[in-house]
Amino acid sequence: MQTPEKNRSFTQLIEFEIEPHQQPALVSALSRQTERLAQCNSGFLNASIQASEDGRRVLNYLQWQSREAGEAAFQSFESGEQDFWQLIRAHRAKTVTFGSFQVLHSLERSHDDALHCTLVP
């Protein structure tokens, strides 16, 4: 028996390709924007911002309770006080790649050092 798609969590991945000198400022701007998204949008689960060691890429990972929650948050990101497209221009991103994924399997370590696996049928 399959879990309905709307009951699966939803992940958005946004990868930015930039010049290395732009990386710290982009990471800072994405951090502020991600905190606003988390505070102002229901359905937020977690997020991370990752920077490549060569300074040329930044990955913004956002996870939501549902596709609808993620899409609503992204719409607010596009029209926020510093909209998404302004953020891209301000940090001179060469390319921006978007990906959307349903979470089917996750593994995490708890505070008691045990591994917890979640499998969505």
Rank of each mutant, 00 (worst) to 15 (best):
W85E: 14
N41W: 07
E5W: 00
S110W: 00
I49S: 04
L119I: 14
I14S: 02
S110L: 07
A29T: 12
Q33L: 13
T3K: 08
G70K: 09
T118S: 13
T95Y: 07
P20M: 08
S66L: 04
V103Q: 07
I88V: 15
F77Y: 13
N46V: 02
A114D: 07
H105E: 09
V96Y: 06
Q12S: 12
A29E: 11
M1A: 15
Y61G: 02
F101S: 02
L115D: 03
T34I: 07
S106W: 01
S28W: 01
S52V: 06
E53C: 08
G99N: 06
A38L: 02
R67I: 01
S52Y: 06
S42P: 07
L37N: 11
H116M: 07
R8N: 06
S79N: 13
P121N: 11
E78D: 11
N46W: 09
N60R: 09
L107M: 14
I49T: 08
L87C: 13
A93P: 05
F44S: 06
Q2D: 11
C117K: 09
D83I: 02
A90S: 14
C40K: 13
L119A: 10
S9L: 05
P24L: 08
L30F: 10
R67N: 10
A69E: 00
T95V: 08
W64A: 06
F77P: 06
Q65A: 14
Q65L: 09
F44T: 05
